[in-house]
């Protein structure tokens, strides 16, 4: 999956590093890290990434609101939602707005890679 661009929208520097370490050795380019959804939407416009990893709990604009804003801009946008909580109501809410993949924190590199490849393969 060489050359695909990934944008990380997460207020945790640890997650940004974890995503880079999982995906960059596999040919992905992790273009940037937005610390909240508002900046994330701006960075989406700037980078036009192929995949976005999106945290649920963030200041200013949370993951659900950010996903809505991104999907409104680009209905085909590929989002993996990350959360320390994995309850079904959150997943249902996200699925309803068009998020197709979820991953629970902490995640293994292989796990993230598999989900990103699955999204891109669709």
């Amino acid at each position: 999956m060489a050359g695909y661009k990934v944008l990380v929208i997460d207020d945790s520097p640890f997650i940004f590093k974890a995503v880079k370490r999982a995906l960059e050795p596999n040919g992905f380019e992790v273009v940037d890290n937005a610390p909240n959804g508002k900046i994330g939407v701006e960075m989406y416009d700037k980078y036009q990434p192929d995949v976005i990893t999106l945290d649920v709990t963030m200041p200013i604009m949370d993951g659900i609101e950010t996903a809505k804003a991104l999907i409104a801009r680009a209905p085909d946008v590929k989002i993996i939602m990350l959360s320390a909580m994995g309850d079904e109501s959150l997943h249902s809410q996200a699925r309803e707005i068009g998020v197709k993949q979820f991953i629970r924190k902490p995640f293994k590199p292989d796990e993230l890679l598999e989900k990103v490849n699955s999204l891109l393969g669709e």
Binding site: S12, T57, M85
Partner: peptide, 20 residues
């Protein structure tokens, strides 16, 4: 910052199980 993240993950995991 890292400890906060660690605590966040533990509490998130626990809360998920509590909700279940």
């Amino acid at each position: 910052t890292y400890l906060a993240e660690f605590g966040n993950m533990i509490s998130g995991r626990a809360t998920t199980y509590m909700t279940d």
